[in-house]
Design a protein around this nucleic acid. Sequence first.
DNA 1: AGTCCACAGGAAGGGCAGGCGA
DNA 2: TCGCCTGCCCTTCCTGTGGACT
Length: 398
Amino acid sequence: MTDTNNIFTKFLASKPIFSNRDALTISFKPETIPHREKQVNDLGRILAPALKGGRPSNIFLYGRPGTGKTLVSRFVGSELEKISGENGQSVKVMYVNCKMKKIADTEYRLLAELSKALGKEVPFTGLPTDQVYNAFFDALDSRKQTIILIVDEIDTLVQKTGDEILYNLTRINQDLNNSKLSIIGITNNLGFIETLDPRVKSSLSEEELIFPPYNALQLQDILKNRASIAFTQDVLQPGVIEKCAALAAQEHGDARRALDLLRVAGELSERNSHEKVSIEHVDDAEEKIDVDRVVETVKSMPKQSQIVLYSIVFLAEKTKEIQTGEVFDKYQEICKQQGIKTLTTRRVSDLISELDLSSVISTKIVSKGRYGRTRVISLNLSDTVYNKLKNLLEEIFL
DNA sequence: AGTCCACAGGAAGGGCAGGCGA
DNA sequence: TCGCCTGCCCTTCCTGTGGACT
């Protein structure tokens, strides 16, 4: 028997771990949302006027990542669509995530994406923005209906393009003849609303809902709920769910993290043809998620960012406190070695900020008095992740 | 109190590629 | 094909800044 043959036979012979793996992914739509009853009810109440042809207030949803904002809004949205259909009312719920690169991260793209969702195709570049805006407006007003627009990660959009688009969207109702538009803005950034133009702020946050982090016990509930769908019977060893919940509770009560841990732990067990998912699998899962995240981020980076990161990784071996100037010197050196054009300090400074945003590195602006103001850069990665990252970058550049 | 360092980061604009309508 | 428009990446120029030093 060949090796692969062996692997496959062994895999087939082992008892299945998962009965429905999808129940542990973010795209899964559960029938109930534990510990978010209040938010579901509140949101439902706010959106209910749509069922009688009214325009619900615009709403802002706040909360840390993985606290159920997206899930609740999509859940209530689809319930609303369903019931409106049964009652002969036309309510349409649209969802866009502004963090999705190349889809909705600029004004143009957002409008193009929305027009497309409303059945009006717009080329992904080429038209003047006001023309795309008109296309969106026409598509919006072409049918008599109430449209609920869920704008996820709305802070990313504003950060990149300014708040003018929000101003336009909130004002659009004045010009609509047939339909009505309500906006649900979702953000992880609690201070975000304060950065907005007061006019946008008041019209966008007519209502506000706050999503507190889950505690460990609530996370356990959520996990038990999903695990009963996702896993075959009795494959989870005692303590597995508790461990996933505890680890995720440390990460600001992030349910997504908890579900990821449980899923990856299951996958690791399956891959090794084990019959049960154990606490050790959860430990390995934690490491694997971190490694995968960093490796994926780095692989998808442009070359210049990779060089900047390589410079930081190189310097991190010698010092704990890395400064922008040092990074730039090392960066120039690597560029020269590689025969790649060097960018200016201004640009490299932006690339460092981007690395910070993708949380591969963390930076802090520190004033050293006479010796200037600079960003102090650190790599807060575990040894395993650091070594993986270093190997990956060396593979690319050596 | 004033100086000065080593940057941060805003603003404006150039150049390029992709895409449009005429 | 041409002129025009967009996003994107980048440069140039500039102002702002916290705190050690004088």
